[in-house]
């Protein structure tokens, strides 16, 4: 949240998000992704999944939320990841994911001297297991 120019190695405050089946329904409505593997246990099991899984893009959306909470004045230039491990969401209760990050690189913005480009090293886990592979975020951040 600092309004000073980010520095390499700065550790960002980890953020946690609880995910319920109701959250998946809300995400399906908002995104249009109504794939039944994110709603229906029987369908998920039938195609060989371990149960109802969160949309990968929902998990990435929460990662993006954390990034924007850390850098509220930044413009996100690039964001992405692989979806390497499914986040299984129980029928009752919630599963929690944690998003942590550090500032990996700070460079001049070639187009705007008032900003810097900031690359983050990110880690997104569920119950201690990494769920997003090669997560990346590149931001244009106003200089402090």
């Amino acid at each position: 949240m600092s309004l000073t120019t980010p520095t390499v190695g700065a550790v960002l405050e980890p953020r946690t998000y609880a995910i319920t089946r109701a959250d998946l329904v809300a995400y399906a409505t908002a995104s249009g992704d109504d794939n039944p593997i994110h709603q229906d246990e029987a369908v998920a099991l039938a195609v060989g999944l371990p149960g109802v899984i969160a949309h990968g893009m929902y998990t990435m959306g929460l990662m993006a939320h954390a990034v924007r909470a850390w850098f509220p004045t930044a413009e996100v230039r690039e964001i992405g990841s692989k979806f390497t491990h499914p986040v299984v969401v129980p029928a009752d209760g919630a599963v929690e994911i944690e998003v942590s990050g550090t500032v990996k690189k700070v460079e001049d913005d070639p187009e705007d001297p008032a900003r810097v480009h900031v690359s983050l090293a990110l880690l997104v886990t569920c119950e201690g297991t990494k769920v997003l592979g090669m997560p990346k975020a590149l931001l244009a951040v106003p200089r402090g």
């Binding site: 593997i37 990968g56 413009e75 230039r77 992405g80 979806f83 990346k136």
Partner: peptide, 14 residues
Amino acid sequence: ELQRIVHGEQRFSY
């Protein structure tokens, strides 16, 4: 069929 699709990777560049 959509239910046979699993998302492997997604990246956006603005």
